[in-house]
Design a protein around this nucleic acid. Structure first.
Length: 893
DNA sequence: GGGCTCACG
DNA sequence: ACGTACGTGAGCCCA
């Protein structure tokens, strides 16, 4: 095989790189304020190119930066004139581009009076003569004139990820031209970006037609007089000189005098120490991770990574399980699975061990059921270090194993240390602590490309690297946990909660498909009637689910007034439609359609699709490490947003039933927990008194704000306003937001807020103090020391900064309420166990808990659950819990 | 994949 | 002058 020469057009590619990632410009800045978007894209591109091409010789050519004009400037004084100034954000990256190239083991070259094109043209000719297979890479079509049997010219298309490889055959196919004729084409069309004209009115199409007939410029002009009279002929004759000048400008020099030789261009590969330093200096986290992963996997040599020694997992079989007899007090364990939903996922394999005894694993997860392994996992005297304990617990439970003795869950700890940018992926979370792993996505592929490699050892080593990383992550992360005063939050709240949640998910909530199907049939009929009526009133059929088409109908064809706009067009949201309803009867039908269709598609059809046929239950997953405030979320399906507010939707809850006959559904919810938390954390005495004074906090607030007597009646409008103010306070109030919500003027809203703060002065003080704290330390905390960092608190942008300030006020409230119910869940679960009750907790919906309860336990549960919830965490004012039960979730209201 | 809409607390 | 109430997830459209 012939040797390879790689020639890269530095300027055009860097330019492409800068604009390919232009939308990332302000996100990619080093701590010293250097923009790095072009560097990041160029770096990725170099990686890809060198891996793909594996060159023997390689060079990146740059346009001359100094001194003398190029011959093209001499030839035409307008050459490249009128170009926009290079943005300074791009210019500042130039010097680093060259370093980047050098650190990748490629040569940089520029030469006075020459453009990068000419350097590449000359070297490609030299390379061809010396028998090299030449690859030219550029962002610019001009270079394709160099294509030949030995030279392939790769040109980036959109961005830098897609590439066309121009060979003579490809050029023939695309333009019906030879590479040489590319110059002739350019002569006729000129070049707008280099600012030289060809022949007036001749663009690509005309040029191709002329070249098909006349082949080249000389022959064309030799026969131009024979052409029949036309505007084109006139233009050709008039612009003859321009065309020939353009041909000279477009022709790339292939015999320039260079001060280098092919022998100077040896490709030396990555300079790992230099590149590491470069990446570190410019905060290239991903590139650094990739580099470290390459080193760890032994594909390249480089800087010593003590914690990342290449480890080999020893494969376990039924015959060598006694290898695990040495396991004493602590092991790391990782059971890998496909996809995200561990309730249904297939297992890929597992690894167990630690650096002292080594790592052992198998792709046969049934091995875990062998006594030695099962006992080890179920032994609470042997500490386990894991990633994502809840998933591990469920996967093992499905194998009949009861995981115990868990001490470290890296996912939970990483989430508690910093919620920002947590993607729940081990490899990216590990990077925060300078541990670099091959990402699952890179190892297995993603989406439809997911495939478990056939090489068992490779798979085990991949899982092993993760297991070993978990082991090494424990110490540094536990240390930070302590510094954050989050030991209690982790050991006494989140870690035990993970087991409670795992049991709830595994238990599942029984759903009667026939109830949903009945509802579905009824809804279908009513939806179809609505659709017919809407089409009739509209006078045409259209896609009712398309806000765009609906907007055209309402606001263009029917001429209804535009009340609100979205980024992309007219808003057709409920509040808008409600305002339009009196003006056109169709609008009310559309509102009804929207409501019923939502119930049908999201809830009837959506839930039916996720009932497990084996047990007729729905097994949601609670995401414990996602929200920025400490709340849970629920997915696959979301059982935290089952309809409640409208009767029509609420009927969905009829389908949710207890799993056994004579059992009931029991629900208990905190009353006004967030406002009680507010009264507690602010220490506001008036707010505390208001809670102690009456049943109805919104009415009490109204009395305070409107200056009514303690026992005076409160009219509904006053109560509604006070309620909105209470919500506003919890959300981090602004007069603008409140005015919008209540449909009042900003100044009226402002005066409400002022009065509120006058009545509850310590709430006001707390709001100021928490904002100040956020500015000073960059984060806010809940009563259990749950932390939320607010990077935007220092933003120059008013919008971002204001948002961060509202968040600073809201997160401690919402988050503390989350702390309280989490503690309650752990205590309720403990109580159920201690009292040997069969009742089971099924769901948490932020301020309420849902249970299924045998009829004979109902009295006890009704007494005990609210009691445990009340006393979960002691506040300065009592917590209040309401409870309900019934034969279905609908009845438990 | 982003935007819109709408379900919950 | 600026212009959003806080926290979520799912279905659908449309590029």
């Amino acid at each position: 095989m012939s040797k390879k020469l790689l020639l890269i057009d530095g300027n055009s590619l860097a330019f492409r790189a800068f604009y390919a990632m232009y939308n990332q410009l302000e996100r990619m800045i080093t701590h010293d304020g250097l923009h790095t978007n072009a560097l990041v894209a160029f770096n990725n591109f170099l990686d890809w190119l060198t891996e793909d091409c594996q060159p023997d010789l390689a060079l990146v050519a740059w346009d001359a930066t100094s001194g003398k004009e190029t011959f093209r400037g001499d030839l035409y004084d307008q050459y490249k004139a009128g170009r926009k100034k290079t943005p300074s954000e791009f210019k500042e990256q130039f010097p680093y581009l060259r370093k980047l190239v050098a650190n990748h083991g490629l040569h940089n070259y520029e030469h006075e009076g020459l453009e990068a094109d000419d350097i590449i043209g000359t070297l490609s000719k030299l390379g061809t003569a010396a028998g090299y297979e030449v690859t030219v890479v550029t962002g610019d079509q001009d270079l394709i004139q160099l294509a030949s049997d030995q030279v392939t010219v790769k040109v980036t298309k959109k961005g830098v990820t897609e590439i066309d490889a121009y060979t003579p055959a490809f050029i023939r196919e695309k333009y019906n031209l030879t590479p040489d004729q590319i110059i002739e084409k350019k002569a006729l069309t000129g070049d707008t970006s280099d600012n030289y004209p060809g022949v007036t009115k001749v663009g690509e199409k005309t040029a191709l037609k002329l070249l098909a007939q006349y082949h080249d410029l000389d022959n064309l002009y030799a026969h131009v007089d024979e052409m029949k009279q036309s505007k084109l002929k006139e233009n050709l004759i008039n612009d003859r000189q321009q065309a020939f000048r353009a041909r000279k400008l477009a022709t790339i020099i292939t015999d320039a005098d260079l001060s280098i030789d092919l022998s100077d261009l040896t490709y030396t590969g990555l300079n790992v120490p230099e590149l590491t330093e470069f990446y570190e200096k410019l905060d290239f986290k991903q590139a650094l991770a990739k580099l470290h992963a390459l080193q760890a996997s032994g594909q390249i040599e480089g800087v010593e990574q003590p914690a990342q020694k290449q480890l080999t997992v020893q494969e376990l079989t039924v015959d060598n399980l006694d290898l695990l007899a040495n396991v004493k007090d602590e092991v790391a364990f990782h059971l890998d699975f496909t996809g995200e939903n561990y309730h249904t996922a297939d297992s890929v394999g597992f690894v167990i061990g630690n650096p002292e005894i080594g790592y052992f694993g198998s792709r046969q997860v049934e091995l875990l059921q062998e006594p030695i392994l099962k006992n080890l996992l179920e032994n609470d005297q042997i500490d386990k270090d894991l990633f994502h304990v809840k998933a591990q617990w469920v996967l093992l439970k499905r194998l009949g194993i009861d995981l115990k003795g868990v001490k470290f869950d890296f996912l939970l700890v990483a989430y508690l240390l910093d919620t920002v940018g947590n993607d729940n992926v081990l490899s990216t979370l590990a990077q925060r602590f300078q541990i670099y792993l091959t990402a699952d996505e890179d190892f297995y592929g993603k989406g439809s490309h997911y495939q478990i490699p056939a090489d068992t050892q490779a798979v085990l080593d991949h899982i092993g690297a993760q297991t070993d990383a978990i082991w090494h992550l424990k110490e540094p992360t536990f240390k930070e946990l302590k510094e954050h005063q989050q030991d209690h939050l982790y050991f006494d709240i989140e870690l035990p909660l993970a087991f409670v949640l795992a049991q709830m998910e595994y238990q599942g909530f029984k759903v009667k498909p026939e109830r949903l199907e009945e509802m579905g049939a009824d809804l279908d009929k009513r939806i179809n009637d609505l659709i017919s009526e809407i089409y009739r009133l509209a006078g045409e059929e259209f896609n009712l689910n398309s806000p765009k088409q609906l907007g055209v109908l309402l606001f263009e064809k029917m001429g209804l007034p535009v009340i609100k706009k979205t980024k992309t067009g007219y808003s057709t949201a409920v509040d808008v439609l409600e305002q339009l309803a009196p003006q056109a009867p169709i609008v009310d039908f559309i509102l009804q359609y929207r409501q019923l269709n939502k119930i049908k598609s999201t809830y009837v059809d959506g839930l039916l699709a996720v009932i497990n046929p084996a047990d007729s239950k729905i097994h949601t997953r609670f995401l414990q490490t996602l929200t920025q405030t400490g709340r849970l979320s629920s997915v696959d399906p979301n059982l935290q947003n089952i309809p409640m507010r409208t009767e029509e939707g609420r009927k969905i809850r009829h389908a949710f039933v207890a799993s056994q006959a004579d059992w009931v559904i029991f629900g208990a919810d905190y009353s006004q927990i967030e406002l009680r938390v507010l009264a507690d954390v602010t220490g506001d005495e008036n707010l505390q008194k208001a809670f102690l004074a009456g049943e109805d906090i919104h009415a009490e607030t109204a009395r305070a704000v409107y200056g009514l007597a303690d026992d005076a009646p409160v009219d509904p409008l006053m109560r509604r306003t006070a309620k909105a103010v209470n919500f506003g306070i919890v959300y981090g109030i602004s007069d603008y937001g409140l005015s919008n919500n209540l449909g009042i003027s900003r100044s009226e809203a402002k005066s409400f807020i002022d009065t509120y703060f006058k009545e509850f002065p310590q709430v006001h003080e707390w709001m100021d103090q928490i904002k100040k704290q956020a500015h000073e330390q960059g984060y806010v905390e809940t009563i259990a020391h749950r932390r939320r960092y607010l990077p935007d608190i220092h933003a120059k942008n008013f919008h971002l900064r204001s948002f961060a300030e509202r968040t600073a006020m809201n997160s401690p409230i919402q988050g503390s309420a989350a702390d309280i119910i989490k503690v309650a869940m752990i205590k309720v679960n403990q109580m159920l166990q201690e009292k040997h009750l069969q009742s089971r907790m099924l769901l948490q919906v932020h301020d309420e808990l849902i249970f299924e309860v045998p009829a004979n336990e109902l009295d006890q549960i009704q007494e005990l659950v609210p009691k445990v919830m009340d006393s979960a965490i002691k506040l300065k004012i009592p917590l209040k819990v309401d409870s309900h039960f019934g034969s279905t979730w609908y009845e438990a209201k």
